[in-house]
Design a protein around this nucleic acid. Sequence first.
DNA 1: TCCGCGATTATGTATAGACAATTGGATGCG
DNA 2: CGCATCCAATTGTCTATACATAATCGCGGA
Lengths: 256, 256
Amino acid sequence: MTEAPLKVPAGAKQHLYQRIRDDIEARIMSGEWPPGHRVPFEHELMAEYGCSRMTVNKVLSTLAANGLITRRRRAGSVVAEPSKERAVLEIQDFAFDAARTGSIYRFRILHRAVERLDSTAAQRIGLPAGSQVLSVVTIHLIDGLPGAYEERLINLAAVPEASEEAFVGDPPGTWLLRRVPWTDAEHIVRAVNADRTLARHLHLQSGDACLVLERRTWQAGTFITEARITYPGSRHHLVGRFSPAGQGTPTGLAVP
Amino acid sequence: MTEAPLKVPAGAKQHLYQRIRDDIEARIMSGEWPPGHRVPFEHELMAEYGCSRMTVNKVLSTLAANGLITRRRRAGSVVAEPSKERAVLEIQDFAFDAARTGSIYRFRILHRAVERLDSTAAQRIGLPAGSQVLSVVTIHLIDGLPGAYEERLINLAAVPEASEEAFVGDPPGTWLLRRVPWTDAEHIVRAVNADRTLARHLHLQSGDACLVLERRTWQAGTFITEARITYPGSRHHLVGRFSPAGQGTPTGLAVP
DNA sequence: TCCGCGATTATGTATAGACAATTGGATGCG
DNA sequence: CGCATCCAATTGTCTATACATAATCGCGGA
């Protein structure tokens, strides 16, 4: 009972914390411990690995923070939902990304108008039809070349000061992010063929594949903004990196 | 200097850990500490909050794990880049997703062979050229219609039993996931125009936009598998949902 | 001047112990 | 038997300490 851990992968000279975590994760991911299965108590793991409670506590707390297990006082810990693959996509700021790669970033506002929501858009974002929104179309230029075409709607009820903003220094996305932190976001990624308008603005052939990222953000339940950003598929892609059980920083990078 | 923290939000009867974390997060999010700004050293925070090093260490480690700060030995911690939007895409199992929507899922293996890595693939995945891999091409059918075209490489050094697997019950992805839990993954999402082969298999016109998801997974540093899954852009998209503040489990959903 | 190397400093990991908070189960009372 | 109460098990947070590890800084020698 007070035995060494079962699975010690070949080159197991990692840190104790990592080893315990790998063991438990492996058992959960492999299905050996199905959802609902009770994870050993902290004092049991202490005995099994011959370590202090702080160490196993850190492991289990991290697993809980990552959604792999659920913990309850007195009742112990149980395995939560099974292994869905989760990829973290980090969507960078255009200007930041350009600075990082030594490129020059500029943008041009193609259209800017206060409009009223039509019914399809209203349904999509969950506001009443006819609500006032600011509609902004922006083209993002990296070293003078079009890098993305952005169509954005901003809820003027939530961000009234946007109606008087000309977006000369920062593009709408950056401006908004600084003004209104969001608490929830929904993303959709699609592939489309460029139509004539897109092709013209992105310097593509009509029909070329483009990556479309749609993002809708809310703050505490109120809709803030919807952005549809179209990237030339040939020149850009999204990159994500993920370690399932988390402590490993889900680092990532996205060419915006 | 050994003073109480500056910002104590109104009802500050939380735990010390949470209070320190909220303080630092607030200063980062508000821009008071811009990217690159040096976060106080652990011993400085100890003095400021009058607590032990373990407590501030846990705060800073968590912030680092969440990507808010970057830590380096001897140099200290600095505020990481702001305004990265991180979207969590959850990539579901085909069969699971089909069951959820009441569709019938089937798959067909188009190609299956033990091969040796050519140099470009070897470089991409970080194995020596010439390593033995199993190459499998699968077509996924939803209600009889092609839903995705999958090209997969499996590292036979890591999963030798794959060489004798015919994949009759489960498609390669599901089979692998059950056998070998992964600990790291890298994802790339792109848009491409369908070539003739893709068009034929996915019932598309040549040139139609397709969404390509490339995933490479590792377990404890050893490469497991690479999958390139191509979806008809018109019929499928990826959906993600995310709450930024970290602790809250990022939930999401993806139509595979 | 430049390079290598050690000293210093900050973080990374781990220990042992302590007390608080929550809650499932046992106990005892009406 | 039903219900309130107490107890004990388990997790949550924190302290104080120790040693390992990495990296910068500055010193000394070539």
